[in-house]
């Protein structure tokens, strides 16, 4: 008896029969045509932008920059710098803080989520404190962080940690509790001890949810970093946004916004790539 070749099939559930051929062909609509459509819609947006700001002048330049002004601000930012640094310096400053805060949140949040998931005692102990802290919006921690640590990098990392910690904990915890009980029983009846149960059954079983948590954590990291830099900072893209707002420079504001958007998308993409590699059994 030979199995059908399922290498094209994505994410089939265990035990589910292979989808019929017609269903498999669907995603083929994909790559080539999809990028084409995407490129076209992006191009349309650029044309619309030009028409509104330059062609017709419907939108005044002090409200939203024209493509040419945007280009000018970008050039200025890249060559001369703005608010104390060039684009690369400012972008790296922000990215580094996001990665540091995110890393600290993951390194502390995921193990705590695992602990709460496997130990009812730990859950009973930690859950009340968690429920109390959880509804506080991460941005509300900014003033306290500044009071404690000033306007420097340490305060930013602390705020990102607070913001990114909660989604990591909650999703890891949910993931652990959602691990198929039968798989745990199967591991135990085949002789697995508690250590092997954790590393070979519970963690892999929770991994998809853990990654969901990491994605949310990463988003929260960028949000809070920009907010914290807006409130008070010496460097970073949030600082650029704040300075451009004070200078009433909409072109520079949009350049900084786009930069944050691109960095957020890029780091999320990296995380997605890590997920794809760490969860090969799903793809």
């Amino acid at each position: 008896m030979s199995a059908p070749d399922l290498s094209v099939q994505r994410r089939a559930d265990a035990g589910a029969p292979a989808p019929p051929r017609a269903a498999r062909r669907l995603p083929r609509f994909g790559i080539g045509r999809r990028t084409l459509v995407g490129a076209l819609s992006l191009l349309g947006l650029l044309v619309l932008w030009w028409v509104l700001t330059t062609g017709t002048g419907l939108v005044a330049p002090y409200r939203f920059p024209s493509p040419a002004e945007f280009r000018g601000a970008l050039d200025q930012f890249v060559t001369d710098g703005y608010a104390g640094g060039t684009l690369w310096v400012q972008a790296w400053h922000s990215t580094r803080l996001v990665l540091m805060g995110f890393a600290v949140a993951v390194v502390t949040g995921v193990p705590l989520g695992l602990l709460m998931g496997v130990s009812p005692r730990a859950e009973a102990l930690l859950n009340p404190a968690f429920l109390l802290v959880r509804p506080i919006p991460p941005l509300a921690w900014i003033p306290l962080a500044i009071v404690w640590l000033g306007l420097g990098d340490a305060a930013k990392v602390l705020v990102i940690w607070f913001a990114a910690f909660v989604p990591s904990v909650i999703n890891t915890w949910t993931g652990v509790r959602g691990v198929d009980r039968t798989l745990i029983a199967a591991a135990r009846v085949h002789g697995a001890g508690s250590r092997r149960l954790l590393t070979e059954v519970i963690i892999p079983g929770a991994l998809p949810m853990i990654f969901t948590g990491l994605r949310l954590s990463l988003q929260a990291s960028w949000t809070t970093l920009v907010a914290a830099e807006l409130v008070g900072a010496f460097f970073g893209l949030g600082r650029v946004l704040d300075a451009a707002y004070r200078d009433i420079n909409p072109a520079m504001i949009t350049v900084a916004m786009v930069a944050v958007g691109i960095l957020g998308a890029a780091t999320t993409r990296l995380l997605g790539e890590a997920e794809r590699r760490l969860i090969p059994w799903r793809s």
């Binding site: 035990g15 039968t182 798989l183 199967a186 591991a187 070979e200 892999p204």
Partner: peptide
Amino acid sequence: FQQFALFPW
């Protein structure tokens, strides 16, 4: 087990 309970990973 009825539902196989193989480790998907």
